[in-house]
Each structure stands twice: as structure tokens, then as C-alpha cells.
Design a protein around this nucleic acid. Structure first.
Length: 418
RNA sequence: GGAGAGGUCGCAUAGUUGGUCUAGUGCGCUCGCUUGGAAAGCGGGUAUCGUCGUGAGAUGAUCACGGGUUCGAAUCCCGUCCUCUCCGCCA
């Protein structure tokens, strides 16, 4: 959530930024609620002060007079306190609907069509045959089975088999090897989290909860990314500045309902309800998040350079940005069958937006400040697999294994099973 | 799933027949005295969030969280969450 003090000082800033994200918020109304809240709060404080003074004057048994006076105060106080609680809740609810403002270098645009391509790395391979798509390749090689999965679980699920599994494990291990070398702390987080946590993280404000699997019996959500359970690690904690930056590499299964995407990417495993992902999460001090964002982006680029797959870096425009992100970069890798670049990983800075709601701080000298939080994908396990299958396919339907993965898989080519 | 115990100011603890608890004590941390320097000792300090105020400051809330009883709640009542012990089940 945003800082209400900043909102009072500069409401236009938040209003403009919300509009840039296509989020409807009534800032003047929120300021009215805030004024009402502060007025009530003051009245309540005065009454409590009166009560405290009265009670403080009582030594032993109170007189009839004092009891009468106390009852009177209590009655007035009860009414005011109830009003205060109601207004306070409304205020917090409304403030939580204000999105994290965008960074100044983020382009104001209406939707994904206005995202900016910052750079393109690598040359798409020229095929002297017609490249097949990942599903055709994966089925022929007995790596991917979506037909059985549809029967057992429904659309947008898959079985990964044989070399598909080995490929996932290889990618996971490569990502961990690189990130451990960089000093990241490995972590395996829970994939079920409390609803309040998801709210505090800012994943439910814009109706994104439509995309979250919910366990109503237990009032829990399945995470859509492990960042959702890694970030709250420091809920209600205060770190020392010397501990920062803190960097984690997590691995977990991720769950997404993908509501409203029925026509999109229906084929194969590009858009599925369940996939595994290696995720990076950074906690840094105020003022260091831009630098950290570039660092995470550089690592994401490195992961595709290691695979030697052409990619481009995209800066997401305001209208395509999530509620809690101040800036987001996507890496899109070349997908031959679609003759275009498609999103494979992304990294965001959420600044202090989640820290404020979760009360995550660090001590800087005398001052306590909110942690700045960033996240980024190392590898998700479906899309990079697609990219490898398609970019490394041979005319006979076999797949050359990227050099860097060969030692993890113990072979250099995936051939059709006999 | 069943039975029981418990959640107090960084840590450990005291406090449950409601008022002197603006929460005691120990440890830790910190400042000072002492010392050639240090240790020990002695003395002081040591939470967070908010409101009002230019300021010094005043004031409110917080004893897991939320409600309730009362003139008054750490203390009594109800609900929720969490932890621990025992039993059952189990990868």
C-alpha cells in the first residue's frame, strides 16, 4: 500500500499514476474519508483523555458521582469509537485500492501494444525446413502429454515426461548454480498462503484474485509465484542495514487460473494452470532498487545468453503494469513457430509498496525505513522449455541440447523414443 | 481428528480474587563514573504506531488479534490465529 502522508501532500501524483495504470480511484473521496477519520480520531482522543483523568483520580472505591460521570463519557465514547473504527476500516480499504505509482522512466501507455522494446540480442535462426511448434515436437519425443492431462485435470494442464523432466531439472540446476555463485540464498517456500498476505502483497486489489486458486475450506490461496510466499518472510521484522541486500532464489510450483484467456495460447504448455519456476527475490535499502532492478534484469539476460536463445528486453508501459509494480521488464524469447518474440521471464520492482502493508523495515542509523522489494524470474519451466525445443529442433525432429545443459542431462541430443 | 497448557516492552521472565501496572526483574544494548587501558563495580538510558503543535512538548493506542463486560481490563467473558505437550492418523 502507498503512504497516506504522501497522498495528502501530493494527491495529483497518485491520481495521475493511477490513471496511467488504468485504475479507477476516487482520490478526492479518499482524502475526505481521511479528513473525517482524523476529526473523529481527535474527538475520541479527547474523550479518552477525559476518561483516563477521571479514572486516574479514583483511589479505591469510586463515588456515585464519579460513576455517573464515567458512564456518561463511556456512552459518548462508544458511539464515537464505533464511527472511528468504521471510517478507519473504510480508509484503509480505499487506500489499498491505490496502485503503486510508476517510475519516471516508465512510458505512459494504454496497453501492451505500447510496451517498449529496449534491445534485441541474438539472431533468430534461419531454418532450411519448416520449424514445428513445441507441442508437435514434444509429443513426438514423448516429452509432453496434454491429452491425458485434459482427461485427468482439464484444459491447460500437462504431463511432462522423459527428457522433458530431465530438461526441467537441468534448467533448475543451472539457475541454482548461477545464483548460488552470485550469493543468493536458496529457499523452498510454501505454496499455500493466507488470504490477508495476498492482499497485503497487492495481488487482489484490481480483481486479479480472479486468477488465484482459492481454498475456501481453509481460507487460503495457492501462490501464482513463489515471490508471494518469499517476500512475507520478513513480515513485522526489522533488519539491520548491514544485512542488505538480501537475495533469495526460490523454487516452487505456481498456480494460475488464467481466467478470461480462453482463446489465447490454447495450444501446448505456453499458458498453463500449473508450472514450476525458479524465482529471484531481493530486499534492498531505499534508493537502491533501480540498481538492483538492472542487476536482476542482467541475470535474466544471462540465463538466455547461456542457452544461446535470441531474446529481446521489453519495458512494460503503465497500462500493462500490475497493481503493485513500479516498473517491469520482460524478456521475450524468439519462438520460431510463431515467428515472433514471446514473454519468458519478467522482473519487477515493487519499491516499498508491499513492505508498508507487511511492516517490513530496516534500521538505517537512527531511522527505520521500509525495505524495497524486487522479484524476477530465473527460469519458469514451461516457456524456456518451449524456446529450447523450438530453437534447437533439427529437421528429423530431434532436439540438440544447449551446450550449457548437456552436463546436467548427460547427453547432447534428444531423439525420438523407439 | 481428540485431550490439555500457553501467547507480556530485543531475549528470558513477574504479574490472572479488575484500580498503586504511565507493566517489575534479569540478560542484552547504550551513555557516564571509575581505570594507564580493560574487566568488574556503580549510576543513567533503553518499544512501536498515530493525532495536535513551527517548536519545546502534549496526548492517544498497543501485554497475539478482534469483540464484549465495567466508572476502570495485561488481569473477567466470547471468537479467531499461533505455539507447545500427549493420543490418533500419516509421506
Amino acid at each position: 500500500m502507498i503512504d497516506i502522508k504522501l497522498l495528502r501532500e501530493n494527491p495529483e501524483y497518485f491520481e495521475k499514476s493511477a490513471k496511467a495504470k488504468n485504475v479507477d480511484v476516487n482520490i478526492p473521496h479518499i482524502l475526505e474519508i481521511d479528513a473525517e477519520f482524523r476529526k473523529l480520531s481527535q474527538e475520541v482522543q479527547v474523550l479518552r483523555e477525559e476518561r483516563n483523568m477521571l479514572v486516574g483520580a479514583i483511589n479505591g472505591k469510586p463515588t456515585e458521582d464519579q460513576i455517573q460521570k464515567g458512564k456518561e463519557i463511556k456512552e459518548r465514547l462508544e458511539k464515537e469509537e464505533h464511527a472511528l473504527t468504521a471510517v478507519g476500516e473504510e480508509l484503509r480499504r480505499e487506500v489499498k485500492k491505490i496502485p503503486n505509482p510508476i517510475k519516471s522512466d516508465v512510458k505512459v501507455g494504454k496497453d501492451e501494444s505500447e510496451n517498449e522494446v529496449l534491445k534485441t540480442v541474438g539472431e533468430p535462426r534461419k531454418f532450411d525446413f519448416t520449424p514445428k511448434d513445441h507441442l508437435v515436437l514434444g509429443e513426438a519425443l514423448d516429452m509432453i502429454d496434454v491429452v491425458s492431462a485434459a482427461d485427468i485435470s482439464g484444459a491447460r494442464f500437462s504431463y511432462l515426461k522423459n527428457d522433458g523432466v530431465l530438461l526441467e531439472f537441468a534448467l533448475k540446476q543451472l539457475a541454482f548454480d548461477v545464483l548460488l555463485q552470485e550469493g543468493f540464498t536458496p529457499i523452498l517456500p510454501p505454496v499455500l498462503i493466507r488470504k490477508e498476505i495476498m492482499e497485503d502483497l497487492g495481488y487482489t486489489a484490481m480483481g486479479e484474485d480472479e486468477n488465484i486458486y482459492e481454498l475456501t475450506k481453509d481460507d487460503m490461496y495457492l501462490v501464482g509465484t513463489s515471490e508471494q510466499s518469499i517476500v512475507p518472510l520478513f513480515k513485522n521484522k526489522t533488519l539491520q542495514k548491514s544485512e542488505l541486500p538480501k537475495r533469495y532464489v526460490g523454487f516452487s510450483t505456481c498456480f494460475r487460473r488464467e481466467a478470461g484467456t480462453y482463446g489465447k495460447d490454447a495450444k501446448g504448455i505456453f499458458r498453463v494452470h500449473q508450472f514450476d519456476k525458479v524465482e529471484m527475490v531481493s530486499f534492498v535499502e531505499e534508493g537502491k532498487d533501480d540498481e538492483e532492478h538492472e542487476y536482476l534484469l542482467s541475470l535474466e539476460e544471462k540465463f538466455f545468453q547461456l542457452l544461446e536463445i535470441p531474446y529481446q528486453v521489453v519495458r512494460i508501459c503503465s497500462g500493462d503494469l500490475g497493481f503493485n509494480a513500479a516498473r517491469k521488464y520482460d524478456i521475450e524469447s524468439w519462438i520460431p513457430s510463431q515467428n515472433t518474440y514471446r514473454e519468458v521471464t519478467s522482473t519487477s520492482t515493487v519499491t516499498d509498496f508491499q513492505s508498508r502493508a507487511l511492516n517490513m523495515k530496516y534500521i538505517d542509523g537512527e531511522e527505520k525505513k521500509y525495505l524495497h522489494v524486487l522479484n524476477g524470474t530465473a527460469y519458469s519451466m514451461n516457456r524456456p522449455i518451449i524456446a529450447i525445443l523450438e530453437n534447437y529442433q533439427q529437421e528429423d525432429g530431434s532436439i540438440k541440447i544447449p551446450q550449457v545443459l548437456q552436463k546436467y542431462m548427460g547427453k547432447d541430443v534428444i531423439k525420438p523414443q523407439k
